[in-house]
Design a protein around this nucleic acid. Structure first.
Lengths: 332, 332
DNA sequence: CTGAAAGCGCTTACAG
DNA sequence: CTGAAAGCGCTTACAG
């Protein structure tokens, strides 16, 4: 390559990374040779010698969830300008798998690690703390963050949902979620349930309508099945919080099949503000968190952080949440 | 590291890659040192020296689509045993972005490249053909594959959908999709439309009910808007094919809001067999392609292919498709 | 503005 | 069964 351009290997490297440093005439010679040969420099070699891989590791529970996919898209956007690339792994909600994937990621020497936060195996936490790169936990606010955290409180989501239903005067209030199963658990969903139950308890309301059913992750189908199970058990239930819009939509569809009118017979609210919730009839009342923005902010923070050589103190950022009132909860 | 274990660097490398080759006592010494130090070998260095990165590149239009996410999950599963890792990039349906991402991927020296097929920029195709690693195009069957292809014919999807509606005796038949817009186009969706129109033409039916509306990618909302536009233009339309279940579901929801009964007033069918289509009322008739299996098969083929040192001839595999009859098309 | 030397952390290919 | 040497393809840090 450098032979064809009649310059040293170093000059090629410079033209490709910082063209300003090179005389226009030599630059053009190099660029022509690059084009003629279809030369694509080997980043593996570059990474090794510069000690910078340009990788940002991202660990998600699954790709099959529009909100987590939105996080990835937001991150990519923010990272693009600084020419970092995402190295994506997913755990299928299994903490043993998280630990395994973490090792794979670490072996690639990412310059930062982003992962969905709050719950990790002991050994995974240890590896994360030992890693000498920035770690940011997202999509929750851990009580003891490993380092940085950008997210929202799932516990508060649960409390907010319960409060909303209580404020509207409902008394027989329930919820549907997956039941935690050892290593394979939706910990963030479970946090929402915990908050929901707590708010009910503080209001001295029964938590008998809170149903954990089936296994994570939740889905439309899961929501339908859980809704039916709950209504059969407690026919007089007035309002239900589903741990995700996915199960909430499933519940609305099941209600239609059971000839229950939403919201006249039963009110339903969800979490996550998925697109489908806006389109169904009645449109779904939900709690919104901007996952795309969450990814963007995380990416921006990382770009800044990696550009400076200072090691900033651990930071925690709450991106907040808001209720989106639509038509699936009765206005009474 | 090797100092702490009292052995050479080579012995550490052997213990980690092929433990059988090492005496149990030395092996244990090494393993203990590895655990004590939390040593994670640097794959960047390993890749450079062994000339094997262990990366398989995967280029998708978007992660925000359950079927493409399923492809990624299937691939990961098949690749896990052989210890390959996916390097994922996505294009947002933009061919200029595909070319840019391809360069990024190539610089990481993947051992194979998987991408959604059939349409690429000239320069991207050239890079792919010059790459001396296996290339497999998925999710379509290109007329001129770059090398391997595993997928189905989107054109046939369109023809099959039209045939199905024609066979049921509908005469005023329409379709909804996004309109192609230069570099940002859903080429596979457009192929389905082309097949659909062709089948209509062969049956000497009007294609006036075929509507291209808005930009890719389609969504629930897109389907709702396109459905309304089509019905307002052609109030006597009897049956509609939506280029994706996402838009089909949006159409069903919009029909409910317009007080049109599905399927009594208008029949609707989709493509992709997304989970939501099974849950809505009426359940959506659709055309099913097993994207998870598509990913699995691609991964298995790659594992075999990379294990042998022969260079097999280019292969094309049609995974087929099937109609899933549910309740959104009138039985007449 | 350009280049020669050294080295990043592993694995390959020997040698013993 | 274990190790010393060479080298993978770049970039860093000089030197001129």
């Amino acid at each position: 390559m450098s032979r064809l351009a009649g310059v040293s290997r170093m000059t090629v490297s410079r033209v490709l990374s910082d063209p300003e440093l090179v005389l226009p005439t030599t630059r053009d010679k190099v660029l022509k040779a690059v084009a003629d040969l279809g030369y694509v420099p080997d980043k593996t070699a570059g990474s090794l010698s510069s000690r910078r891989t340009g990788f940002i590791a991202l660990m998600l529970p699954t790709l099959t969830n529009a909100n987590f996919a939105a996080v990835a898209h937001g991150l990519t956007e923010a990272l693009r300008e600084a020419n970092y690339h995402l190295l994506i792994a997913y755990t299928d909600y299994d903490m043993a798998e998280e630990e395994r994937q973490l090792l794979n990621l670490l072996a690639r020497r990412p310059e930062a690690i982003v992962l969905t936060g709050a719950m990790h195996r002991r050994n995974a936490s240890r590896m994360l703390m030992a890693a000498d790169v920035p770690v940011v936990e997202i999509a929750d606010l851990p009580s003891q963050p490993i380092e940085h955290a950008i997210g929202f409180s799932n516990y508060q989501v649960g409390r907010t949902a319960a409060r909303y239903l209580l404020d509207r005067g409902f008394t027989r209030i329930g919820a549907i979620a997956a039941s935690p199963e050892g290593e394979v658990t939706d910990h963030r969903g479970e946090e929402r349930m915990r908050g929901f139950e707590e708010e009910l308890r503080l209001a001295r309301r029964s938590t008998d309508g809170v149903l954990r059913h089936g296994t994570a992750p939740v889905s439309f189908h899961h929501g339908a099945a859980a809704f039916r199970a709950l209504v059969e058990r407690q026919p007089d239930i007035e309002a239900i919080f589903a741990v995700s819009d996915l199960s909430a939509v499933g519940a609305v569809m099941e209600a239609q099949r059971m000839n229950l009118r939403i919201p006249d017979d039963i009110s339903i609210m969800g979490f996550g503000d998925f697109e489908i919730g806006r389109e169904i009839n009645p449109a779904l009342t939900t709690i919104h968190v901007d996952f795309h923005a969450l990814g963007l902010r995380t990416g921006k923070m990382l770009v800044d952080l990696l550009a400076s050589d200072a090691t900033p103190a651990p930071s925690t950022l709450d991106v907040g949440l808001r209720i989106v009132e639509r038509a699936s909860v009765k206005d009474r």
